[in-house]
Structures are given as C-alpha cells and as structure tokens.
C-alpha cells in the first residue's frame, strides 16, 4: 500500500515538473519582454542581467509614447487596417460562402476548390507585381491598398470556414421563414446569420490577427512614416536604434496586448477557426 502511494506521489511530482518545464518554455520569453519593459532603462542594459526587476517603472512606456517614433499613430493605423480587413472580408466571405452552401450552380465545386487552392499561395511569389498593381491603382501608401491585399490572403480561409458554418444550419429554417413571408435576404439576415454568430466571430478573430500581425506586405506597400503599421514601425525601430530594448520591449508588450486579449476571450472560437482552416485547407 505504502509503495503504491509512493509511486503515485512520484508520478504526480513528475507531472508537476513536466508542467513547469512546458510553462517555462512557452512563457519565459513573454516574462522577459514584459519584465524588461517595466525595468528602469539602465537596468535593462546591465550586464549580467537581473532576472527580476529591482523596481517597477513605466518610464519606458512614457519615453516610447513621447519620443521620436510615431508609435501611437502606428497603433492607430494597424487598428484601422485590421478592422477594415475584418469588415470587408466578412462581407465578401459571407456572400460567397452563402452562395456555395445554399445554391447549386454550375462552377460551384471548381470555384470553391479554387479558393481552397490559393490558401497556401506563397506571398513572395506575387509580391513584386502586387506592389506594381497596387501602385498603379493609386493605392500605394493607403489604408485601402493594405486592406484589399489582406482581404485576398484572408478570403480563402474565411470562405471555407463559413461554408462549414452555413452547412451546419438546416436549410429548412430559412425555407420556413420564406414560407412565412420573409424574403431570402431577410431570412439570411434574421435567421442564418444570428445562428452562425460564433462561427462568424471565429472568422473575424482569425482575420483580425492575420492583419494585425502581418509584416511583409505592410513593409512593401507603404513608405510614408504616417502610414506605417505597428509591425513595420517596430521593425524599423529595431533597425534604427539597434539595441534600444527599453523602447522595443515596451512597444512589443503594447503590440501584443490586443492579440492576447482577443485570444483569451475568444479562445474556443479561435482554436476552432485555426483547426478548421488547417484541416480543410
């Protein structure tokens, strides 16, 4: 009996160590970023480093927001572009997915498979002509230029996710509403969309993160400082100031806050979106 207790205790202990190791690997880089951002600047550049801040201060954040780089503006740009991408993607994707899931028409299968195939299209393959197209359309250095580019890279996944969502909602509900005198559009608006709200939320979050986190297109399609996204802003920061980790770590913390919040609040939808995207895609 005693031996069994001991063995069980040993297993529990091993499990605890395992959990600790996993959490350490996943979270230590965060800890280092956030704790560094709260250290006094001269402590960040102390060698050897301090593993726990000797005092907590917000001076790095104050410096970040008051000094040279236009950080608040970058943040605003990213928020506008990511929200715009979400709205536009939802409109396009809901329309297309609704057609694919509710109508039988010639070209349904090849078209929806065509969307699927573009999911892994490497951005670098189209980067140069895309830059030229966007410039020719007069959308270089504009929100719209980035929004429609992100739209295209978000659409395949969004359409595929929403086809699945719509197909899980019985057609009969809409048909009943139409019998009761609704138009098809009203039936969609009043019945199908509310019932798909959690699926639509999953798509929205996924698209928001994609647009918020994207770097290369934002770098290629903008040049004016006032049009930079937060990712381009941070990267140029890194180039310009090299090791100004006091500013970089506070900027990194602020940049991560929206995605971390979104992730924790909508985790179930997010995981669902990610899985469906990967498995279907």
């Amino acid at each position: 009996m005693n031996m069994m207790h001991q063995a069980k205790f040993g297993v529990r202990l091993l499990e605890l160590v395992g959990v600790a190791v996993i959490l350490f690997i996943s979270l230590f880089p965060f800890y280092w970023m956030v704790s560094s951002s709260l250290k006094p600047a001269k402590e960040i550049f102390a060698s050897p480093p301090t593993w726990i801040p000797s005092e907590i201060t917000f001076e790095n954040y104050r410096n970040l927001l008051s000094s040279g780089p236009n950080f608040a503006r970058y943040f605003l740009n990213s928020a506008i572009i990511a929200s715009g991408t979400v709205i536009l993607t939802l409109i396009f994707a809901i329309a297309a997915a609704y057609a694919f899931s509710r109508y039988r028409f010639r070209g349904n299968k090849p078209l929806s498979l065509g969307f699927l195939a573009t999911q892994f299209f490497p951005l670098t393959v189209v980067m140069i002509p895309l830059y030229m197209t966007i410039s020719r359309l007069g959308l270089y250095n504009s929100y719209l230029g980035l929004i429609i580019s992100y739209l295209v890279f978000a659409l395949p996944l969004a359409v595929w996710l929403l086809i699945g969502v719509f197909e899980s909602i019985p057609k009969e509900l809409e048909e009943a509403a139409i019998v009761d005198g609704c138009t098809r559009a009203q039936a969609l608006w009043k019945i199908t969309l509310p019932l798909s709200s959690s699926g639509i939320a999953a798509v929205a979050i996924y698209v928001f993160m994609l647009a918020w986190n994207e770097f290369i297109l934002a770098l290629v399609l903008t040049s004016e400082d006032s049009m930079r996204t937060i990712q381009v802003g941070m990267a140029s920061f890194f180039d310009q100031y090299g090791t100004r980790y006091d500013l970089l770590m506070s900027a990194g913390t602020l940049t991560s806050i929206p995605v971390v919040i979104l992730f924790f609040f909508m985790q179930k939808q997010f995981v669902r979106g990610a899985l469906a995207g990967a498995v279907k895609g």
């Binding site: 996943s26 979270l27 965060f30 970023m33 990712q231 890194f238 971390v260 992730f263 997010f270």
Partner: peptide, 12 residues
C-alpha cells in the same frame, strides 16, 4: 497558455 507564442506577431 501554451498556444500563446503562436498568436504573437512575428515582429515581436
């Protein structure tokens, strides 16, 4: 918690 690194922006 383990999923967090995955949602972090690449630049960060």
């Amino acid at each position: 918690l383990v999923l967090l690194p995955w949602v972090m922006p690449g630049v960060v």
